[in-house]
Design a protein around this nucleic acid. Structure first.
Lengths: 155, 155
DNA sequence: TATTGTTATACTCTATAACTATA
DNA sequence: TATAGTTATAGAGTATAACAATA
């Protein structure tokens, strides 16, 4: 019945819930945007064997800022044990290396290898394309506005 | 050493990673914003025994739009089995009821009970306060801009 | 034959506490 | 005594497939 009746299709489509007050809550919209975005992002990276979470870690390791594991955790909002797992993964793939911090031998600085830098460049390229698709309903100006607004609330 | 040297504190603070290119990617900022937002949201609801995911379901049940479980899944991007678990939880707490759709007895319409409506009102009030805190770095105009931009990309 | 809700199951993600080595 | 990283483990969240009732 539902499939044979086009009116029912329209009535039953999820768009009708746009009028629910939930759809006006910024937190809900943010959650939806990130769910769609990270799905698209993971899809863009699947051929490289990476997920967005792993990419974020690799990206900081490739930044030249020489993050320690603790700093990665603080910035990515992950606890130390999750960082260990992420760095283990990237290290086994030869994308990053652990270097002992000479100023504090308890700390380990995570640095991208040559291979890591290459994979990171390719991953960044693919992610920016995916980001463009996710934001295709926005003009360039709007994308810039969005970035600035998010920067003000993300940190 | 780190704690006794204020300079090291500043150098080592996570703010220094704001200059990493990762911090300019909208997807990353969106993920961070929602992580902070849903943490604050869950915190705001903890006294009501709800999480934001459960609130979303309750909110649609309270909207008067008479969603079926399938529609809830489509709109909230959750698969049917997750909806079952969510509705089970809310039903056991007496906040929603399952009603058989007279037009298709396979479907079940989820409707908030009186108690569900009350809890929903209180939860909404608390969430809006939490949202205000999350967005305290934005002016009212900026919050409205953000809502409109997110609406364009969230669906 | 297809769809809705359900159940079972496994997989990932996240959170916590205990351990080691360094400070 | 405190901190960085590690390990182990359990809990929450998510994804998949098979099933019964209905279309």
């Amino acid at each position: 019945m539902t499939t044979s009746n086009p009116t029912a299709e329209i009535i039953g489509g999820p768009e009708r819930f746009l009028e629910a007050e939930l759809s006006q809550q910024i937190q809900f919209l943010t959650a939806r945007a990130r769910a769609k975005g990270s799905a698209k992002g993971n899809e863009a990276l699947v051929d490289l064997g990476l997920k967005v979470r792993q990419y974020s870690t690799l990206s900081l390791a490739a930044s030249g800022l020489k993050p320690t594991q603790r700093e990665l955790g603080a910035f990515l909002d992950l606890d130390p044990s999750q960082i260990v797992a992420l760095v283990d993964f990237l290290e086994k793939r030869g994308l990053v290396a652990r270097e002992v911090d000479p100023r504090d031998r308890r700390s380990k600085i995570i640095i991208a290898t040559e291979k890591g830098l290459e994979i990171h460049d390719e991953a960044t390229k693919r992610l920016l394309i995916a980001e463009g698709e996710s934001l295709k309903n926005l003009t360039s100006d709007e994308q810039e506005q969005l970035r600035e607004l998010l920067l003000k609330i993300a940190f």
